[in-house]
Each structure stands twice: as C-alpha cells, then as structure tokens.
Amino acid sequence: MDAPETFNFAENEPEVQWANARRTVVLPMSKRAEAEQPLPGGTTQRGQQTGTAKQLSVHPLEMEPSGNFQQKWSTQRSHVPGKGQHVVPTAEERFWLLNRWQGQVLTVGSDSFEAQLFDPGQPAVIEYAEFAKSELPPDALMLLRPGAMFYWMIGYRDRGSRQRTRESVIWMRRTGRMDAAAFDAALGHVEDIWRAIESPQSNYSAG
C-alpha cells in the first residue's frame, strides 16, 4: 500500500510527471455531514466528518502534480506515565484526494465558464462542465481565458485530527511565463525552421 498522500496548495506550479500506478490511500471512515457552509476562496465546504480508517482507491493520474503531494506530519510530545515522554504523530492540515481531472477552458461567460475535463482514471471518457466563476478565487479569475488549463480536485481536507471538510478545488495552472531571452530563443528556433523549409524551392502560393 502506498503512503497516504496530501495535496499542498503551494503557490508554485507543481512539477508534472506521468504516473500509471493505481493509488491506495487510507482515509478515516466517513460520517454523514452535519453542517454545510460555504468557504471563501475557491473551495466549498461540504461537510464535516470524523471516524476510523478505511481504504479508498484514487484514480491514477495522467498529469499528476506529484511535486505537491507531501506527507505533512508533525510530531507532538506527550507524557505517558511510567514511560516518560514519547513522540506521537499528529496530522496537520491535509487534503485527501478522491477524484481529480485536468481541465481546459472552452469558453468564458459573464458569470460562468465551460470546460472539457479529462479524468485520467477514465481514459475512454471526456467530460464537460460549466462552473460558476465564483468557484474561483480572485487571483485565479485573472488566469481564466479560453485554452487555460487547470486541475479540478474533489477530496477531504483534514484540519488537525478533529475536523474534516469535503471540498471542490479548482487550481489554475500558472506556468507559461517566459522571460525575453527564452522567448527570443524559442522564436529564433521557430524562424530557423521556417526559413529552412521556405527556401526558393518552396511552393508557397499567395492564392
């Protein structure tokens, strides 16, 4: 069994790697949510659950932001009578992934956007969704344009060991910045190629 995994919402774009193995994670047994309340900033809180451990299967991911998966355990010292102090691992805030898609924005409307979604665990299926823009935090709204790629994740977030919420998280990919030197190099490469094939023997027609 693989180690439990968590998703760390770092500002930096995760490294993208290919992964084929099916993952198994250990999750606490869920209970029916007792309260539902909205959370600001791109997540929606769906419920609060506690319980004992249960095995869940998470779909393998085609484009997996593996760099952001971390085990985030802290240690806490406690006193046990007769045995002195020993270290008890307690979980910090973690995100347990239940399902994830890679999405690409198709159209952007006034208060919503449409996207096609690829679930790496369902390679023979393409999915389509319309999201309200309010699902995105302000800084992600600035990245919203046709063609933009994002990850959509559904999972449980544990805050400490006593609070669990079910969340939908849209994470816009933030790559694609280029410095002038990188762009000039890329453009130079492209122009070299086009120049090579657009020789005098090229058959270009102006129509």
Binding site: R46, N99, S112, E127, Y128, A129, E130, F131, A132, I154
Partner: peptide, 16 residues
C-alpha cells in the same frame, strides 16, 4: 461523495 460534490460544484456536467 464525489458525485454529490460534482452536482454541488457545477451548473452542468456531462460525461461522454
């Protein structure tokens, strides 16, 4: 849980 969250998070959703 995933199905429920999909319904709650999207206005339209289709799998083809």
């Amino acid at each position: 849980e995933v199905e429920k969250t999909i319904r709650e998070s999207t206005r339209k959703f289709a799998s083809r």
